[in-house]
């Protein structure tokens, strides 16, 4: 917002960052980059039974430019990797990434010629969710972990 450099480390700055982070963590607009099996559990998490909207991450935006949380749900192959990277690059700062499931985190048991061994070889990741696929409860847990992480972020990272 242009003020960061002046306010960093000051009392006003830290209060301001608390307020901003609080607002941000409860209004996460997610971009589900759904490719594979985990998408089914993502559906379950988003639908009425588990209802991710209780945690302030209700509305999936299907345009990366309107989203600030990238859910990489499922296996990413080498053919898809440039697409993922482009989607990430199109998102505005501040942005966060969740690697949903074993494949997105590490390639899972697909240790072969076509699978990317974890999306962190392409883009930075904030939270990893294990499981093949993870249960909805795990996803909600990951979302809360991400919210804690957002709350702790210092002001200068919020350009």
């Amino acid at each position: 917002m242009g003020l960061e450099s002046n306010l960093t480390g000051t009392f006003v700055g830290s209060r301001l960052s608390d307020a901003l982070n609080w607002a941000r963590k409860y209004s996460l607009f997610q971009y589900p980059f759904v490719t594979a099996c985990c998408g089914m559990e993502f559906m379950s998490t988003a639908c009425s039974h588990y209802d991710i909207s209780r945690f302030g991450a209700e509305i999936p935006r299907f345009s990366p430019r309107q989203a600030d949380l990238l859910f990489v749900v499922g296996t990413v192959s080498h053919k898809l990797a440039p697409v993922l990277r482009k989607v990430y690059e199109q998102m505005c700062d501040p942005k966060w990434v969740v690697a949903f499931g074993a494949c997105a985190s590490s390639g899972g048991f697909y240790d072969n010629y076509c699978t990317v061994q974890g999306i962190d070889t392409i883009i930075p990741v904030d939270v990893y969710i294990p499981g093949c696929p993870p249960r909805p409860e795990q996803v909600l847990d990951a979302l809360m972990m991400l919210q804690e992480k957002i709350q702790r972020e210092p002001l200068e990272k919020q350009a």
Binding site: H78, K79, A81, R85, D111, Y113, C114, I122, I123, P124
Partner: peptide, 27 residues
């Protein structure tokens, strides 16, 4: 299934299972 520019034919028995040909790099 593979992309243009991929070298070799992966299901041939002499293609190593984890010989990868990435087309993008870390941000």
């Amino acid at each position: 299934l593979m992309w243009e520019g991929f070298e070799g034919h992966p299901l041939r028995k002499d293609y190593p299972i984890n010989k990868r040909q990435p087309i993008t790099t870390l941000l």
